[in-house]
């Protein structure tokens, strides 16, 4: 691996780290606007993180070492997953380290420990959050893998970088609308479910009837909470990146020239922020679904990814 590759990895890491709170801020701001509130500055999440890092954390006396270890594991596994997804340049230098399966399972590693941490404090809220997360995660994972595979087929590769690269330079069977369309809708639903957005979970509430992710992390405070929140932001960013770069990668740098990279950064930030706005608007248009109705939504996502596959094989012109 050359020095440039290494620099690119560092650049991508800081991009993800630096941009993810902004995405969260944008979505909050859009929601506030839609609800006729003034809303906080889009840079508010940065201040929140800085504040949380400085606060004294409280750890339950019931908890074991799993509880304080989880934020670090979650942070590192999510950030590692983000390094597999090309943001401003394709192919990514870390392309070789893992394909779509590795991405999904790296994210699952974080979820696994987060669910454990939810149970660790002994509070019923945490257990409830873990239990709900278990069912949502179980139902999204097959749909996620199938939808990513359907897209992988059109590119003839299961490496994310290769998919993005081939779509960006219009190589292979990328110009096949039905599979892409279906996979896009499926992946959008999955994004909402995986990142705890409105029809599935409500990130802005602490009501025990509705919360999933918030219930799991209820006992966290201080720097642990900061890491968990940051990781949640990065996960959101990973899914937004997948959506924009798999289905509309145009603008991403495919060569190593400074101008291409610069353009890549600009286009990427523009696209991700744009999609964040869409998600914010989308969240305001729907009410949160009852937990047992979420299965219908996720079932639909699964069927859509299945159809994407069917269409790929059968609609050969």
């Amino acid at each position: 691996m050359s020095a440039i590759d290494f620099l690119l990895i560092i650049l991508q890491m800081f991009l993800v780290l630096g941009l993810s709170p902004l995405i969260v801020g944008v979505i909050r701001r859009v929601k506030a606007h839609m609800q006729c509130r003034h809303g906080a500055n889009v840079f508010q999440p940065y201040s929140d993180l800085a504040k949380l890092f400085r606060k004294e954390p409280v750890i339950s006396t019931t908890a074991s070492w799993i509880f304080p270890a989880t934020p670090y594991i979650l942070f590192s596994s999510t950030l590692a997953a983000s390094l597999l997804v090309p943001t401003i340049i394709a192919p990514m230098p870390l392309n070789f380290a893992g394909n779509i399966i590795a991405l999904v399972y790296l994210l699952a590693l974080g979820t696994f420990f987060l669910m454990l941490a939810g149970l660790d404090s002994g509070s019923a809220f945490g257990g409830m959050g873990s239990s709900r997360e278990a069912i949502v995660a179980s139902l999204t994972e097959p749909a996620l893998i199938l939808s990513l595979f359907a897209v992988a087929l059109t590119a003839g590769s299961a490496n994310i970088s290769a998919i993005v690269y081939k779509t960006a330079i219009l190589q292979g069977i990328v110009l096949d609308p039905p599979p892409h369309l279906m996979a896009l809708v499926a992946l959008f639903i999955i994004t909402l479910a995986e990142t705890g957005r409105v029809p599935v979970d409500n990130p802005a509430t602490h009501l025990e009837l509705t919360m999933i992710h918030e219930a799991m992390i209820l006992e966290y405070s201080g720097r642990y909470l900061a890491l968990v929140e940051w990781a949640a932001g990065m996960k959101l960013m990973i899914f937004l990146t997948l959506l924009v770069n798999i289905f509309a990668p145009w603008g991403i740098a495919t060569t190593l020239s400074p101008s291409a990279l610069g353009l890549g950064v600009l286009v990427f930030v523009g696209k991700v922020v744009g999609l964040a706005v869409v998600i914010g608007v989308f969240e305001c248009m729907f009410a949160k679904l009852r937990l047992f109705r979420v299965t219908e939504l996720l079932g639909a996502a699964f069927i859509l990814s299945l159809l994407a596959l069917v269409f790929f094989y059968i609609l050969r012109v």
């Binding site: 993180l49 800085a50 890092f53 400085r54 606060k55 004294e56 954390p57 409280v58 750890i59 339950s60 006396t61 019931t62 908890a63 304080p68 934020p71 670090y72 942070f75 590192s76 950030l79 404090s121 002994g122 509070s123 006992e219 201080g222 720097r223 900061a226 890491l227």
Partner: peptide, 20 residues
């Protein structure tokens, strides 16, 4: 890196232990 970030951004800090 996560540990380092927590250290840089939050200082050493001390942790309080309390019941749930």
């Amino acid at each position: 890196l996560g540990w380092g970030l927590a250290y840089v951004l939050g200082g050493k800090g001390k942790t309080r232990f309390y019941k749930t």
